[in-house]
């Protein structure tokens, strides 16, 4: 069984600074979104439990060919990529179309995993759109997965409860961030990552026209300034109250 994980290349958010309410992206290295890494870790754990092959799919700028080494180092077996510098800031329906075409090229798919939202725009649309394009069932907000022969038992984390559902495979699952702790890739795996198989497609191979209104244009950014909150207290009691209110300490 092939387990497919969709991952999105984004700037390393830990290294993005905010200046004049705009993110400064110059010189920031690319990585994958953090919840995408949870999705990959889920795939690796499923593989360890039941065997199979973990395939990463992604569409992005040429730099993606290098960035994908991060997923291959973490344990993915191979990668299917669409590379084109025009793919920067494409909107969700285009991503879904490109990734669906990649998925069609992979045989014997059991599970297609997504993070519940990407690390940059967090629209959470691509997973459900792909399920629709491919005519597959989709389960969102997944916090636990158990394999059961030709189906999976999935726990969904909802606002005030958990819901357990069973779904036949193949299926699209979108993963919550707290489902696991992604592993740290070993140096040996890092150095082998570049030698793992990669299938690379061009946008033309998929027959998609990127011209027109296919891109997201940021009109204004409301990135918060990193301001220190200042609270004045008169005595210890007020200090404790303030710390409790701010959630710094708990009773």
């Amino acid at each position: 069984m092939n387990i497919v994980v969709a991952m999105k290349q984004i700037p390393d958010l830990q290294q993005v600074r905010i200046r004049n309410r705009q993110p400064v992206l110059d010189g920031v290295p690319m990585t994958f979104g953090s919840i995408d890494k949870n999705a990959l870790e889920t795939a690796l754990q499923l593989k360890e439990a039941a065997g199979g092959n973990v395939i990463v799919i992604s569409a992005g700028t040429e730099e993606l060919e290098d960035t994908v080494k991060e997923a291959l180092a973490a344990g993915a077996d191979e990668a299917y990529l669409v590379l084109d510098d025009e793919l920067e800031n494409i909107e969700s329906s285009v991503s879904a179309h490109l990734l669906a075409e990649l998925i069609k090229q992979i045989e014997n798919i059991g599970i297609i995993l997504f993070g519940e939202g990407s690390g940059d725009n967090y629209s959470g649309q691509v997973g459900p759109r792909i399920a629709e394009i491919l005519g597959l069932p989709e389960v969102g907000y997944v916090c636990d997965i158990e394999l059961e022969d030709s189906r999976v038992k999935v726990t969904r984390s909802l606002e005030d409860c958990e819901e357990i559902v069973r779904v036949n495979l193949p299926a699209v699952l979108t993963i919550m961030a707290d489902i696991n702790e992604p592993r740290i890739p070993s140096v040996t795996q890092i150095l082998k990552a570049g030698k793992k198989p990669k299938q690379i497609l061009e946008v033309e191979d998929i027959g998609l026209d990127l011209k027109g209104d296919k891109k997201i244009i940021t009109l204004s950014s409301l990135a918060p300034e990193n301001k220190r909150k200042q609270i004045t207290v008169k005595n210890g009691e007020e200090l404790v109250d303030a710390l409790l209110t701010e959630g710094v300490i708990r009773r």
């Binding site: 080494k69 991060e70 890092i190």
Partner: peptide, 13 residues
Amino acid sequence: KEQELIQKTAKEY
């Protein structure tokens, strides 16, 4: 990229 990832692995660990 490999050296960047080695740096990241060492930092994270």
